[in-house]
């Protein structure tokens, strides 16, 4: 599903990703853990197509398509979803309008019929109910005046409504209390299945208590220095990054 090979990228001439290779097969959830400054967020942004990063080498393919050649909106329509570490506020844009516009834009890019207002509202209300969120969420402006937890819940709501095949979670657990963390995890777990994959980027093991990964990778210095099963996360939690990074060096 997602296949990254030798990916190198820099920002403002500074090399951040230094030859990452990683494959996430269909139906699997992988975690990427790493210390601050290891390139975790850069990887998420490069994969989702944010401006300002220069790919200097390697490839990334998504269902066989050259991901790096696609516009961000085309990546979304192809089924990629980035849950932001810091969700962006959009004053003057209502959440319902935002969600419906996004869903229909993806339908249009895929050549599928669009949802009308009634169909969309029905769908949105059903998803809100599943996530135990209030309808009020739809009436507010996107993320404006939301608490940190509400912003992350809104990311999960977007994910539920956009139904991606692949979710990239960029430190979605940062700044969350345990209740919000559980809601986020439930949102991801609800999508799990043979046709859904995710790459969970996190600094702490905590989130992985709720989203059990099939595989854990450790990122340091812009490279993956170790890969293993869920037990790798526990080892990091017990021993910290320092020893592992030193071993790899």
């Amino acid at each position: 599903m997602l296949h990254i090979e030798n990916l190198a990228a820099e920002i403002d001439g500074k090399l951040i990703l230094n030859g990452i290779s990683l494959t996430v097969p269909r139906g699997e959830v992988h975690a990427i853990m790493g210390p601050n400054g290891s390139g975790k967020s850069t990887l998420a942004y490069v994969l989702s197509g944010r401006d300002g990063y220069t790919v200097t080498g390697g490839t990334a393919t998504f269902n066989g398509q050259d991901l790096l050649a696609m516009e961000p909106e085309a990546r979304a329509a192809a089924g990629l979803f980035l849950a932001f570490q810091y969700p962006v506020e959009l004053p003057g844009v209502g959440n319902a309008n935002f969600l419906r516009t996004a869903r229909n834009a993806q339908h249009r890019l895929r050549g599928e019929p669009e949802l009308d207002a009634v169909q969309f509202l029905k769908l949105a209300r059903a998803e809100l109910k599943k996530l135990s969120m209030s309808d009020d969420m739809l009436r507010r402006n996107v993320n404006v005046g939301f608490s940190g937890g509400e912003k992350k819940r809104n990311e999960v709501l977007q994910m539920a409504i956009l139904r991606p095949e692949f979710a990239l979670l960029d430190e979605t657990d940062s700044g969350l209390d345990i209740d919000a963390l559980k809601i986020v995890a439930e949102g991801v777990n609800a999508l799990r299945g043979p046709n859904f994959s995710a790459l969970v980027i996190t600094h702490y093991q905590r989130l992985l208590d709720y989203i059990a990964p099939d595989c854990v990778h450790v990122l340091a210095g812009g490279r993956i220095i170790r890969s293993g099963g869920p037990e790798l996360a526990l080892e990091l939690e017990a021993n910290g990054y320092v020893g592992m990074v030193a071993d790899a060096a």
Binding site: E73, R75, A77, L90, G92, T101, A102, A105, Q106
Partner: peptide, 28 residues
Amino acid sequence: ADQLFYLRSRGVPESQARGMLVRAFLSD
């Protein structure tokens, strides 16, 4: 730029995203 990328990352094409942000700017 962050708002624009946020919209595009959700599948909204760039021109449409810019239009949404311009309307949001005028809305108040």
